[in-house]
Nucleic acid binder design. Structure first.
Ligand SMILES: [Mn+2]
Ligand SMILES: [Mn+2]
Ligand SMILES: [Zn+2]
Ligand SMILES: [Zn+2]
Lengths: 143, 143
DNA sequence: TTATTATTGATAACAAATATCAATATCAAG
DNA sequence: CTTGATATTGATATTTGTTATCAATAATAA
């Protein structure tokens, strides 16, 4: 079961925008926060469809977009792959090590790197807003 | 005019693979190394077509792929944007600051960051192969 | 010069993301 | 609890960027 805070963020966002809550929305929210991180629409759709064959792909897609809008999800594009989504709630920023063999995502954070990035931006008279650091290589299980 | 080394790398690669050199290939090579960095197929195609209306989009695309294969170009995907290509010849690795307003790419390199990345990978029992660091924000001309 | 076959350019096919739309469900108001 | 306005859904069409196809042409080696 997922924290009530998460549900409330979503429900409040929906109400505030004059939208409506639906069975599908609750299902998608639940499934998304229970599923593997960095999931594609396709996979999330499949997992929901297993229990609710009536669900539509477009509905899942649309609601993932909504989840991004209200800050409960982040969209990520890795190379030519399909867009992935990762649930976001009360966790700080992180970067990824991505295994070239098995595709595993390892979440990492290095405060020194983050600080140096800010320095680097400043040095170039550049105001950093967000960043993406991906290290591709071979994970311990694959070597 | 571009260094003869570049032309030779391309020509040698072509010969070694049993391929053939063509007027279009020379044109594309020239145009690519004269054009703005981080260019899309579409833009490169347009710039070539201005002088040679007969050129085909697919030909430009195919040859950019060839250039990547022989190490004279790097492909880069930024979010949902079209694939970009950047010429590569005798220059070391760099990362990018990307302006959210004007789209400008600023090339940067920070050796400390690179070292820390390797450390971070090692700490996770991960063999780094390549990485991508993009810092999005506002460039000095846009703020 | 000739034969072989890689290349080209036009266009078709493909895949992912998004838009469309009629049927349906939500929910505020009475 | 109805009812009416309208947001949502699910099926499918459209769009977009990329890649494949193929007949005509051009590049190379013999
Ligand atoms: Mn993550
Ligand atoms: Mn660059
Ligand atoms: Zn792995
Ligand atoms: Zn700018």
């Amino acid at each position: 079961m997922l924290p009530n805070d998460v549900k409330n963020i979503f429900r409040n966002y929906i109400r505030e925008k004059g939208l409506r809550n639906t069975r599908q929305r609750e299902e998608i929210l639940d499934a998304f926060f229970s599923a593997e991180k960095h999931i594609t629409v396709e996979k999330l759709f499949a997992s929901i469809k297993a229990k609710n064959p009536g669900i539509g792909y477009a509905t899942v897609h649309r609601n993932l977009t909504l989840l991004c809008e209200c800050g409960l999800a982040d969209e990520m594009k890795i190379g030519r792959q399909k867009t992935r989504y990762e649930p976001k709630f009360g966790q700080k920023h992180h970067d990824h090590l991505i295994c070239l063999k098995c595709g595993r995502f390892i979440e990492v954070n290095d405060n020194k790197i983050e600080k140096l990035q800010d320095k680097l931006a400043e040095l170039n008279d550049f105001i950093p807003v967000r960043h993406k650091l991906e290290i591709y290589g071979i994970c311990k299980d694959c070597k």
